[in-house]
Amino acid sequence: MGKMSELAVMAEEAGITEDVHGALMAYVALQPWDMANAVDRFEDAYRGRWESLDAYAHDQLWATDAAYRAACNESDTGRVRIDTVAWRSDYAWADGHVFRNL
């Protein structure tokens, strides 16, 4: 059985729906040495689709941090600088999908 067929079987057994198979493939690509572990951890790790990790960070901060919203509202650009190094230690972005590092 090829890697893609094996991944499809593992995804089905784990109850991962077809609408997120692209995200699952992106997640497996982040750790190709351990496909079974990636499938097992996928649902806990997957955060959704974003154009970048910076966009995800902005949306999360906007939704949860009043001080961040206030700073953005005072900024000429409507955004403030985000410490992407810190976000990259906790999250990964691949092919338009964001994953929490577990």
Rank of each mutant, 00 (worst) to 15 (best):
M1H: 13
M1K: 11
M4I: 11
L7K: 00
V9S: 12
M10I: 02
A11N: 10
A11I: 07
E12Q: 15
E13C: 05
E13Q: 15
A14C: 01
G15N: 04
I16R: 03
T17Y: 04
E18H: 09
V20H: 03
H21A: 07
G22W: 01
G22T: 08
A23K: 00
A23L: 03
M25E: 14
A26P: 03
Y27M: 09
A29P: 05
L30T: 10
L30Q: 12
P32E: 15
D34G: 10
M35G: 00
A36N: 09
N37G: 14
A38Y: 00
V39A: 05
F42P: 02
F42R: 05
E43M: 14
Y46W: 11
Y46N: 01
R47W: 08
G48N: 13
W50D: 09
E51Q: 12
S52Y: 07
L53D: 07
L53K: 09
D54G: 11
A57E: 02
A57W: 02
D59Y: 06
D65L: 07
A66F: 05
A66L: 12
R69F: 04
A70I: 06
A70H: 10
A70M: 09
C72Y: 08
E74K: 14
E74L: 15
D76V: 11
D76R: 13
V80L: 09
V80S: 07
V85Y: 05
R88I: 00
S89M: 14
D90C: 14
Y91G: 05
D95W: 07
D95S: 14
G96L: 08
G96Y: 04
V98H: 04
F99D: 02
F99M: 06
R100G: 03
L102I: 10
